[in-house]
Computed example of a mutant assay.
Amino acid sequence: MNLTFDADAVVLDIEGTTSASAYVTEVLYPYSRSRFGALLADRGHEPDVRRAMDQARRLLGDPGADAARVERALDDWLEEDRKATPLKTLQGIVWAEGFARGDLVPHFFDDVAPALRDWHEAGVRLYVYSSGSVATQRDWFSHGPGGGLLSLVDGLFDTENAGPKQSPGSYRAITEAIGTRPGRTLFLSDRPAELDAARASGWLTVAVRRPGEPYHRHAADGHPEVESFAGLRVGRAEQSEASSTS
């Protein structure tokens, strides 16, 4: 089934939506786990690493936690798939270096790049909202197919600059930041709780149900569904009207 939306902005989830969850859990997570110890022990003085370690200590309720204790917490949060901000920050640092060295190459489903280019050409602004850090998102889209997709993206949001993805307040914060009315903003995600939060803030929503992904067979709870971006048309009515009269 094809869906058509008149919208000014599309906000994209990554894992399970633009990219395979298995790549994240089977490639990226082990890569970061194997490098946390050296990062914390050798580079704890660096501002971004130090800030993330202090955040981890606050979450642990242990202001004196040493690098080894923080590493154990990171491993536990990885095992739980917990969207903890310090975990995501430190993963972002490790992954950025992996992308730069060529150890890592981001995964995108084949239908993603053509759709993003079509929507961008139609005048739709594109944003990303992921539990992965903004730094990780920037690297992910910079190293995407065809020389990268970052040039198509107008802004990046994570749990630090927007808030938790299951909170309607986070979507209202993004609305304020991008200056697009909620009813003109379309959110694409595979996770029902995120879609519910976006809908509660007045956004348009689509549940992305890709075969083989963890949420493929989950009920969409009234959200329209697609299995691929190829089944989704997004444009701006005024842009279409202008093109038809030129």
Rank of each mutant, 00 (worst) to 15 (best):
162 A>I: 02
86 P>T: 09
92 G>A: 06
58 R>Y: 14
50 R>M: 07
161 N>V: 04
140 W>M: 12
123 G>I: 15
112 V>E: 12
132 G>N: 06
74 L>Y: 11
89 T>Q: 09
69 R>V: 14
144 G>S: 03
76 D>P: 12
116 L>E: 12
167 S>K: 09
105 V>D: 13
72 R>S: 15
115 A>F: 10
112 V>I: 14
67 A>F: 13
92 G>W: 10
41 A>R: 15
160 E>L: 02
172 R>Q: 04
69 R>N: 12
53 M>P: 12
112 V>W: 08
115 A>K: 01
110 D>H: 12
94 V>F: 09
60 L>T: 09
54 D>M: 02
131 S>E: 11
46 E>Y: 03
55 Q>Y: 04
116 L>N: 05
89 T>M: 08
120 H>Q: 13
50 R>K: 03
89 T>H: 08
80 E>Y: 14
121 E>C: 02
162 A>M: 00
137 Q>G: 05
142 S>E: 15
137 Q>W: 03
96 A>F: 07
113 A>I: 10
94 V>E: 14
101 R>M: 01
72 R>C: 11
167 S>L: 04
140 W>A: 00
119 W>D: 01
142 S>C: 13
114 P>T: 10
78 L>K: 02
161 N>R: 04
116 L>F: 10
128 V>M: 08
97 E>D: 15
100 A>F: 00
116 L>S: 03
133 S>W: 04
104 L>N: 07
47 P>S: 01
168 P>C: 06
149 L>G: 06
63 P>Q: 05
109 F>E: 13
85 T>A: 06
168 P>K: 03
42 D>K: 15
137 Q>L: 05
160 E>W: 06
107 H>P: 01
141 F>T: 12
125 R>T: 13
50 R>G: 04
168 P>G: 02
149 L>S: 06
171 Y>K: 01
63 P>V: 07
107 H>C: 05
140 W>D: 11
93 I>D: 08
147 G>T: 07
138 R>T: 14
114 P>L: 06
129 Y>Q: 05
107 H>F: 10
163 G>T: 06
51 R>C: 05
91 Q>E: 15
111 D>F: 05
63 P>A: 02
124 V>A: 00
119 W>H: 08
172 R>G: 05
66 D>W: 14
141 F>P: 07
120 H>L: 02
73 A>V: 12
162 A>G: 08
93 I>G: 00
153 V>Q: 08
146 G>I: 10
156 L>T: 05
96 A>M: 12
90 L>P: 11
173 A>F: 03
132 G>F: 00
53 M>H: 10
73 A>Q: 13
109 F>L: 10
170 S>C: 02
43 R>H: 09
124 V>N: 01
141 F>H: 09
109 F>R: 09
112 V>F: 04
83 K>N: 06
111 D>H: 08
50 R>Q: 06
133 S>C: 03
173 A>I: 03
60 L>R: 07
76 D>F: 14
166 Q>V: 12
108 F>K: 11
128 V>L: 09
70 V>G: 08
96 A>D: 14
73 A>H: 12
